[in-house]
């Protein structure tokens, strides 16, 4: 066996051969092109039994709400801090009007994004940031500042166009209550192999709301540079393999 030229790497007793000949996975860094899709779904839990307030950018959802519907003031801005043509963060502010006697004990908010990677394969998906915060003390404001991180269960391809997950997170045209159940939305979303998640949101629950003041959600969501794992192409593997081969022979 030692006479075979490729025996050197295959011998598991050699410490240098721990990684093997082939690079079966590799990584690169890229800042994704993320844009807020201007879709939001908000649920505010109030102290009244079975109560809550809701609003979304989907008319079919709002139609279901009846008296639970409250229209907020939403102000958003995306910022390209370093002027490189890619957005770096989203500033999202939502003011939910409340009656003086209403008390907000919790908030659940879904924002959707368009997420694109271009360096290796062109990967396009619609993703979401899910944010929730509850407190036993009625709040006046929720401040959130976190990263929209990529979650990969699968290696991405090294080339080509990948639009598997370029589908809506929320079926905003459906008239059915089932499609707006958060458990169903999240279950369908988590079935994907590539998702985004709002990481380190650092929610701060501020208390002390004036009688006529709205409940304010103030969120900053950053779009950081990601390390993306991918499966190398055939020639890339050959390119790195011959170097391994030569070094083991010497």
């Amino acid at each position: 066996m030692a006479t075979q030229p490729w025996a050197a790497w295959s011998c598991s007793r050699s410490p240098r051969s721990a990684r093997g000949l082939w690079r079966t996975q590799a990584a690169y860094r890229e800042q994704p092109a993320v844009r807020f899709r201007y879709e939001a779904l908000l649920l505010a839990t109030t102290a009244a039994p079975g109560g809550g307030l809701a609003w979304s950018t989907f008319p079919a959802f709002n139609r279901l709400q009846g008296e639970r519907l409250r229209v907020p003031l939403v102000a958003t801005r995306e910022e390209d801090k370093n002027q490189d043509g890619k957005m770096d963060r989203l500033h999202f502010k939502l003011e939910l009007p409340l009656k003086p006697e209403e008390q907000v004990l919790g908030v659940q908010l879904i924002l959707t994004f368009s997420y694109q990677l271009h360096r290796m394969s062109t990967f396009v998906m619609q993703s979401m940031a899910f944010l929730q915060s509850f407190s036993p003390i009625p709040g006046s404001q929720l401040y959130v500042n976190g990263d929209l991180k990529l979650q990969q269960r699968q290696l991405l391809s090294h080339r080509g166009l990948d639009t598997r997950y370029n589908v809506s997170v929320i079926n905003g045209t459906s008239p059915f209550a089932y499609d707006y159940d958060l458990t169903n939305i999240i279950a369908a979303y988590q079935d994907r192999n590539v998702t985004t998640v709002l990481a380190d949101p650092n929610p701060v629950w501020l208390i002390g709301r004036a009688a006529n003041a709205p409940f304010i959600i103030n969120a900053t969501i950053r779009y950081p540079v990601e390390v993306i794992l991918y499966q190398p192409g055939f020639w890339e593997m050959i390119k790195f393999a011959w170097i391994q081969y030569v070094t083991h022979q010497s």
Binding site: L43, T45, A48, P49, G50, G51, G52, A54, R63, L64, Q65, G66, R68, Q108, P175, F176, A177, Y178, Y180, D181, L182
Partner: peptide, 26 residues
């Protein structure tokens, strides 16, 4: 039931979709 367990009153019924909803009624 929808969203986070709240009941929505006027939600349509889909053909061949069974459900069992308990609604805390305000």
């Amino acid at each position: 039931q929808s969203m986070a367990g709240q009941c929505v009153e006027n939600s349509p019924v889909a053909f061949l979709q069974n459900f069992d909803a308990t609604c805390l009624t305000n």
